[in-house]
Amino acid sequence: MIYKITIPEVAPDVEEIRVLEWHGGPGQWFAEGELIVELETHKALVEVRAGQGGVLRQILAEAGDWARIGVPLAVFSDTDDEALPASPGDGADLMVEFVID
């Protein structure tokens, strides 16, 4: 199954985030609880941790990039051989845990 990471409103008023650091690249398996990416909002640093296991397939917003709320940041899948969708927004939402500093 194909998943995507999108940034919901992790904190009140967040309109835009900046990607600080990906903790892995395409092809990497993330177990539940592992840190996938660190983001910055206007108020806080946010750690995005896997809420379920999955393979990172595609990074859509590189470190340093800015993204508005709701825009997909990455594509995940259950296994590393699943075909990727035409539009990254087509996947289901990957379960993630946001840890706000």
Partner: peptide
């Protein structure tokens, strides 16, 4: 202004 803080 408070509402400027979420902006970039």
């Amino acid at each position: 202004h408070k509402r400027l803080f979420p902006t970039a």
